[in-house]
Simulated scan of single mutants.
Amino acid sequence: MFLRKKPASKILDWLYPSICSLCECGLSEGKSLCNECASELPRIVTPFCDICSEPFDGQIDGDFDCPNCRRITFHFEFARAAMDRSDGMLGLVHGLKYGRQIHLARDLGALSAEAFSDPRFAIALEEKWLLVPVPLHWIRKRQRHFNQAEEIARELSKKTGLPLADLLYRSRKTPTQTRLTRKQRMENLKDAFAVRKSWRKKNPATSKEVPGVILVDDVFTTGSTVDACAKVLRKAGVPRVAVLTAMRG
Rank of each mutant, 00 (worst) to 15 (best):
H145V: 13
E54V: 10
K31H: 13
R80K: 14
D107P: 02
Q143V: 12
M186F: 07
S86T: 10
S117L: 08
G99L: 11
L215V: 10
N203Q: 08
G161M: 06
V213K: 01
A38P: 00
K5I: 04
E209A: 15
L104Q: 13
S9P: 02
D87F: 15
F116Y: 09
C52H: 04
L156V: 02
L189A: 06
R4L: 14
A122V: 09
F76V: 09
I123S: 14
Y169M: 11
D65Y: 04
R80C: 05
A79G: 15
G161C: 12
K10Q: 08
R106G: 06
K173D: 13
G161A: 08
G223A: 05
C20F: 04
E155K: 07
R200V: 13
V241H: 02
P55D: 05
T245C: 14
L27I: 07
D218I: 05
S171T: 14
C25E: 15
D87E: 11
C66L: 04
Q59C: 00
D57L: 10
V134P: 09
I44L: 10
G99E: 11
G58D: 05
D217N: 13
R4Y: 09
P163R: 01
H75N: 15
S18N: 11
V132N: 02
P133T: 03
L41W: 03
T160Y: 13
I11C: 11
K235C: 03
L233N: 02
V241C: 04
C34G: 06
